[in-house]
Amino acid sequence: MIQFSGVTKRYPTGYEALRDVSFEVAAGELVVVTGHSGAGKSTLLKLAAGIERATRGSVVVNGQNLSSLGETALAVLRRHIGFVFQDHKLLFDRSAGENVALPLRIAGTASDETGRRVRAALDKVGLLAREKALPITLSGGEQQRLCIARAIVNRPAILVADEPTGNLDAESSRAILELFLSFHRVGVTVLLSTHDVSSLSQLGGRHLALRAGLVESAAPLGEAVPG
């Protein structure tokens, strides 16, 4: 489903965030990317979601080589990948419901269908009662769950999450990770990053460790990390 082959990402400043990274994620798999700050986790996830382009090598998602896609095709592909941002990227002048509806508005989904799906997504993350609330009135954990609701509202086959438990207390972190596990259990491919290795035991799945832009260790395809 996701295939990185010899991927290098160099930013215009000259900083090389990833170097010759190769790995595969099968459909329905859960892969956890770990590493310290600056290891290249966020860059790897952005490349997988088509938010960034590789400088060298190829990123193939759902059989499409992202390097060969134009800007418009890449944007359309992003609609089918749910992305949970580290800094949430919520619109603070819109209600929780309107934030979740944004991907559906972009895709031109009918109003009644939009309303139904928004409520279902909010219900899934436990925020249905806060549909009309502004994000500023939500706690950090609730904002993260709102971001997850926006990521799943288009029913993506791939869910990518960048440090979804960063800055959350232990209880909120467990609840968020449990959400990702529930998506994984229904067949969604989940690729998430964390710098908190203690969460690996809760998540299971496969583990990809990055250090300074290089893959330090990777459990082979289909093989779970021991708990």
Partner: peptide, 16 residues
């Protein structure tokens, strides 16, 4: 600007 950038991240094309 913020709304535009978020929209582009989640799949809005330049045309959108």
């Amino acid at each position: 600007r913020e709304e535009i950038e978020v929209s582009q991240l989640i799949g809005a094309t330049a045309g959108d």
